[in-house]
C-alpha cells in the first residue's frame, strides 16, 4: 500500500535559454491529503527546488492566476485538492494553447490585447453628472449580464478551446464573456462598436460551438453562450447593416 500522505507530482519544466524543449520533472510531496495542487507546488518550491516557476496570488479562486493543466484538464491549482484526484502520479503542465514562458508560467500578453480590443468599460448611453445621481438598474436588467461579470480572467476556457489552439488570434471565450458583460448592460451604448470589433474571421466566426470552454469555467460564466449569442448578433448585423442609419 503506497503511503497516502506522499504524492508524486510530474511537472512540466521549461527554462528558456537552457532547455531546448519542456520535459517532465518528478517530485514527491509530504502530507499530500491536505494540500491543494498550489500548496504542493509551494512546498516543492520551498523545500525541493526553488527554481520552480508558477503564478498565484489569492489562493481562493478569485484572482485567476493559478490556471494550469492538472491531469490533462485545465483547473485552478488553488481550488484543486490532491485528495480529490485519482490515486497515482499527478501531472501538472502549463495551460494548453499558450506559449510557455517558463515552467508553469504562460504568456498572457495576447489575452490582455484581446480584452483591450473589445472596449472593456461602460460606454454610457447618456452622460450623467454626479448631481443627477447614479445610473439605475432593475434586478432583471442586472440578471441579463451579471453572470458574465463573474469572469476572473483565468484563461482556463482558452486552454479548453481547440479553435484557439488552431488560431491564436481568435478572440476566444473569456474576452467574449467580458464583451457580453458590457453589451448586455442596460446602461451601456457600445454594442455596435464591440460588434464591429468581432465580426471578422478571428472574431466570433472562428468558434464552432465546441462548448468545452463553459464546462471548464470555474465561475460558471458560460463563455460559450457569450460567443454564440454574439454569433447570432453578428449574423444579423451582417444583413441588417444595410438598413441601419448611421
Amino acid at each position: 500500500m503506497p503511503d497516502p500522505a506522499k504524492r508524486e507530482l510530474r511537472i512540466l519544466r521549461y527554462q528558456p535559454g537552457v532547455d531546448a524543449a519542456p520535459a517532465f520533472g518528478t517530485f514527491w510531496v509530504e502530507n499530500a491529503e491536505n494540500l491543494s495542487v498550489l500548496e504542493a507546488l509551494q512546498s516543492i518550491k520551498d523545500t525541493l527546488d526553488g527554481s520552480l516557476a508558477f503564478r498565484w496570488s489569492c489562493r481562493m479562486a478569485v484572482c485567476g492566476s493559478c490556471g494550469m493543466m492538472i491531469n490533462g484538464a485545465p483547473k485552478l491549482a488553488c481550488s484543486t485538492l490532491l485528495r480529490d484526484l485519482p490515486p497515482g502520479p499527478v501531472t501538472v503542465e502549463p495551460l494548453n494553447n499558450f506559449p510557455i514562458e517558463r515552467d508553469l508560467v504562460i504568456s498572457v500578453g495576447g489575452f490582455v490585447k484581446k480584452i483591450e480590443s473589445i472596449y472593456p468599460y461602460i460606454i454610457p448611453k447618456e452622460p450623467r453628472t454626479i448631481a443627477q445621481g447614479p445610473y439605475l438598474q432593475t434586478p432583471a436588467q442586472l440578471a441579463a449580464y451579471e453572470s458574465f461579470s463573474d469572469c476572473i480572467n483565468c484563461m482556463l476556457c482558452y486552454a479548453a478551446c481547440p479553435q484557439f489552439g488552431e488560431n491564436p488570434d481568435f478572440i476566444g471565450p473569456g474576452a467574449m464573456a467580458l464583451l457580453q458583460r458590457y453589451n448586455g448592460d442596460s446602461r451601456d451604448a457600445g454594442r455596435q462598436k464591440r460588434l464591429d470589433a468581432i465580426h471578422g474571421e478571428d472574431g466570433v466566426w472562428s468558434c464552432t460551438a465546441v462548448g468545452i470552454c463553459s464546462e471548464v469555467c470555474p465561475k460558471s460564466v458560460d463563455p460559450a453562450n457569450a460567443v454564440n449569442q454574439n454569433k447570432t448578433n453578428s449574423a444579423f448585423d451582417f444583413f441588417l447593416r444595410f438598413l441601419r442609419k448611421e
Binding site: 434586478p139 432583471a140 460559450a224 453562450n225 449569442q229
Partner: peptide
C-alpha cells in the same frame, strides 16, 4: 442542447431561465 448557447439570456421574473 446547443440552442440556449446561441440565445440571449431569457429573463423571466427577474431571473435567468436555466439552459
Amino acid at each position: 442542447q446547443t440552442l440556449p448557447k446561441t440565445m440571449p439570456k431569457l429573463i423571466v421574473n427577474g431571473e435567468a431561465v436555466p439552459a
